[in-house]
Simulated scan of single mutants.
Amino acid sequence: MENVKDTFKEVAAAILPVTIVVIILQVALMRLPLEALLQFLVGVVFVSIGFFLFLLGVTAGLLPVGELIGKKLPKTKKSWLIIGTGFLLGLAVTIAEPDVRVLAKQIDQVSAGEISSGILVMAVALGLAIFVAAAMVRTIFSIPIHYMLIGGYVLVFALSMFVPDTFVSISFDAGGVTTGPMAVPFILALGVGVASVLRAPSASSSEGFGLIGLASIGPILAIMLLGVLFQ
């Protein structure tokens, strides 16, 4: 019951400020048609209900299962299985990520179908999956995260010199949308779970953090490589 109350407060804190600002703008400046305002308010109700149920599901299901998988995998003592599971989970949650779908649909519309939403979703999913697997490698072998981050972004900025400007812009948006409500809870919980089991003098469960920031480099590189193919 306490979890339900906390979730309700989170939803209210997220939705109410936006609703209040729009209503103030409506009264003071915009004067939108009454029908549009009513549609907005109905949308707020639906979003609030959906967000509430989603957060309950994340807390009750995604986070515990992700962390449990992360804790069970290292006990197999098979590095390839941990890395492979990270890849498959990264692929699956990105394909299911609603933010990625929204971006892909918008790009499909703007490009008049030249860059199809299906190709974009798969490129983003593969990019993130590869870097989630790389993050598992980092955790297993205690590789300092700044080495991988610096190397990843050096590659990003080097590649950006050979990619059309349109794809550079899309690539950074793709890196942002992968940090959405499906990918973050599951992948972060997986990383923390793996790191908590692989404790060593040089490693702790805190090493599970930073995984999302590292993984988001993958979609940027994937879209840039896609841009090279589209040239």
Rank of each mutant, 00 (worst) to 15 (best):
K105T: 12
L55M: 15
M148V: 07
L55G: 15
T19R: 04
V100E: 02
A158M: 01
L188V: 09
P17A: 13
V197D: 14
P64W: 07
V177Q: 04
A195S: 15
S206W: 13
E97W: 05
S205D: 05
S196K: 11
T139R: 06
K77A: 09
F46W: 02
F87Q: 00
F209W: 14
L38R: 00
V197A: 13
D6H: 11
L229H: 01
V228D: 00
G193T: 05
V45R: 14
V100S: 02
L37G: 10
G90L: 12
S196Y: 12
A189I: 13
L63M: 10
V11Q: 02
L32W: 10
S204H: 07
L37H: 06
A28G: 02
V121K: 04
L120S: 03
S205W: 12
L188K: 06
A195K: 13
R101H: 04
Q39Y: 00
E114I: 01
G50W: 10
G50K: 07
K5A: 07
M148W: 04
E35R: 01
A222I: 08
G90C: 10
I107A: 08
A112N: 14
P17M: 13
A12V: 02
I130P: 04
A133K: 09
L38K: 01
D99K: 02
A104Q: 12
D108N: 15
F167A: 06
A158K: 00
L103N: 03
L221H: 15
V154L: 01
L89Q: 08
S48I: 07
V228E: 00
L190R: 08
I115A: 03
E67W: 05
S79W: 14
R199F: 15
F157C: 10
G193P: 05
A195T: 12
L62I: 11
I15R: 13
P181M: 09
L32V: 02
V132P: 13
G175T: 06
D6P: 05
G57W: 03
